[in-house]
Design a protein around this nucleic acid. Structure first.
Length: 574
RNA sequence: CGGAGCGUAGCUCAGCCUGGUAGAGCACUUGGUUUGGGACCAAGACGUCGCAGGUUCAAAUCCUGUCGCUCCGACCA
């Protein structure tokens, strides 16, 4: 490709609405342009990178036995109602109406469509296993698009769906995808690692997210360097001991605490009740019903865990206006010992199990209760792990301290089970003629997000530093004089033609620009290897190879092509 | 949806407080000089100051509304 023929609008100045480095570089290097919030046009260089990532994904998916399909992005709502996700995914579903007033949904994922397909086409265990994938545009009604391609209203995703005859077979499919994902991100030059994750609206038995460590990531991951445990903070657990019981303990005793409405205040003089001997009482509205949640005073509720454990679809903290008529006191004086209305579920964090000698609100403003025993004095509906892990807690597996870091989610694999196949009747006949639901898995990669994650992870002060495998062009030839027939241009054309003939993706910067402009642009865009051809070095019979971010390597002009080929071979991802 | 900020040339921004001829740098066009890390000189083109209404002799500037964007929060397969 000749620079003058393509379209690479680089920016010297940083666009005002870009916040993180990868977003700025996407814009400055001329890869994308914003149409409006959350919607981007991919320019020629951006498309090239996108296709590179897609190609890697296709190769690995095909290699793992998946077959490519293409499903409609516009989908009828009735299958979404059948799966239940019309309600559970309501907040992210884009809906449109046609001229007849009929409603459609724009697909954020395609479990419903693929399961409908399987329902019609797969009848026998002889047809299984099958894994279908597609690479397509997806839609999400993001309430706040941000960070460029990271969180957009429209994006490109690879989604795959496996169908198996049994749990064991489904696990094998899951494992194949898990391994394929590991290879895909490695080939993209990304340091991504899998973590245990919450299944969220997709549902299913369990899942792993593939995370790229980055301070700008929107996820937090707890991990153990000693044993390799890693989990999204929404899911992570630790090996902290339960709250110690203290002898028998006396009877529950009410005491006055005028004006004390925080854990912190109760821990101070004159009360002096340490936070870890307090019970924090939270009231949530879960699927329109009030519930009480108990966690230890020094712990934080993990809403995702709460929703996952109780199966709630929507949950929010109750307002004081909702709490007072329910429990008879304002937040800050709440408890679950007395005056808990019948029918209100009480969920307690496992760390409180067996604890006594605890202090909690009396459901009477200005009063607390001490000597509370969870077993004796509180009617707990169910015990769950509901707390958020913090850095430094011992790993549940090996006891070493956990660390927490931010990360970008680029992929997510789910073991779905039969949630969708039962609801949408994807059934097959087994060897003994019995009808069984297919056991499913689903596997997503945010393709556009992956492109940005590569940039976020691989840049320096001068611009992007592309890994060879996903660079828009592997090599940029930079003649410093472009006059037709000049020695520099003739050699540039020759090297350009020979590299092209060898299958190297190469761009020839044939613009009549000053050297500084060309060098700055090449660095900003981040071509892995630059070949500079100028009169000075050519006088010595040399051209200059310069890896992006590396040192200048003068080489004899006649060796340029072979040296470039050797460099690319040596610097390609596995 | 709650809070905050910003909408002025293609881009980055000044001007607004204190109303009175719409600006700078970069980019763009033409000519010239330059030519190994975002050149210089000269000339030029580019704006319904987001939109609508109001106040006023007069509005980019003050007021009201509205739309859009950005940030924080809520939310997030």
């Amino acid at each position: 490709m000749r620079w003058s023929q393509t379209f690479i609008p680089t920016l010297k100045e940083t666009p005002a609405d870009a916040e993180i480095v990868s977003h700025k570089l996407l814009l400055r290097a001329g890869l994308v342009r914003k149409l409006t919030g959350g919607l981007y046009t991919f320019l020629p260089l951006g498309v090239r990178v996108l296709r590179k990532v897609e190609q890697i994904i296709r190769e690995e998916m095909n290699g793992a036995g998946a077959v490519e399909v293409l499903m409609p992005a516009l989908q009828p709502p009735d299958i979404w109602q059948q799966s239940g996700r019309y309600e559970t995914a309501r907040d992210v579903l884009f809906k449109v109406k046609d001229s007849a007033g009929r409603e459609w949904v724009l697909s954020p994922t395609a479990e419903e469509v693929i399961t409908s397909l399987a329902a019609g086409e797969i009848n026998s265990y002889r047809q299984l296993p099958k894994n279908f994938y597609q690479v397509s545009v997806k839609f999400r009604d993001e309430i706040r698009p941000r960070f460029g391609l990271m969180r957009a209203k429209e994006f490109i995703m690879k989604d795959a769906y496996s169908f198996d005859v049994s749990d064991e077979a489904a696990m094998a499919s899951y494992r194949k995808m898990y391994d394929a994902y590991t290879r895909i991100f490695a080939r993209c030059g990304l340091k991504a690692f899998p973590v245990e994750a919450d299944t969220g609206v997709i549902g299913g038995n369990f899942s792993h997210e593939f995370m790229v460590p980055a301070e700008t990531g929107e996820n937090e991951v707890a991990f153990c360097e000693a044993c390799g445990y890693a989990a999204n903070l929404e899911k992570a657990t630790s090996g902290l001991p339960k709250t110690a019981a203290r002898g028998i303990g006396g009877a529950v005793e009410k005491f006055a605490t005028p004006g004390v409405v925080t854990i912190d205040a109760l821990s101070r003089s004159p009360y002096g009740v340490p936070a870890n001997r307090q019970i924090k009482t939270l009231v949530y509205i879960a699927d329109s019903k009030p519930v009480i949640i108990l966690i230890r005073g020094d712990d934080q509720l993990n809403e995702t865990k709460f929703m996952a454990k109780t199966g709630a679809i929507a949950a929010r903290p109750a307002t004081p206006e909702e709490i007072v008529p329910l429990l008879g006191a304002k937040p800050g004086s709440l408890g679950a010992v007395v005056n808990v209305p019948a029918g209100v579920n009480v969920y307690a964090d496992e760390r409180l199990q067996g604890a006594n000698d605890m202090t909690t609100g009396a459901n009477e403003d200005g009063f607390h209760l001490k000597n509370v025993s969870l077993e004796r004095d509180v009617k707990v509906t169910a015990w769950f792990d509901l707390r958020t892990v913090t850095a430094g807690e011992p790993c549940a597996k090996c006891g070493q301290p956990l660390k927490i870091r931010r990360a970008i989610e680029v992929g997510h694999v789910f073991k779905l089970g039969t949630k969708y196949s039962e609801k949408l009747h994807a059934l097959y006949l087994d060897e003994s003629g019995r009808q069984q639901p297919c056991v499913m898995g689903c596997y997503g990669i945010g393709v556009t997000r992956t492109v940005q994650a590569v940039i976020e992870q691989s840049n320096d002060k001068d611009g992007i530093v592309w890994p060879v495998a996903v660079a828009p062009f592997a090599v940029c030839i930079t003649p410093l004089g472009v006059a037709p027939g000049s020695a520099t241009m003739q050699l540039a054309e020759k090297i350009y033609a020979e590299l092209g003939a060898q299958g190297v993706e190469v761009i020839l910067d044939d613009r009549d620009e000053r050297p500084g402009v060309k060098f700055k642009d090449a660095d900003l865009i981040g071509f892995p290897l630059r070949v500079a051809i100028g009169e000075k070095s050519l006088a010595k019979g040399e051209v200059e190879l310069k890896p992006r971010g590396g040192a200048l390597m003068p080489v004899p002009a006649e060796d340029a092509v072979s040296r470039v080929l050797a460099w690319i071979t040596a610097n390609r991802q596995p």
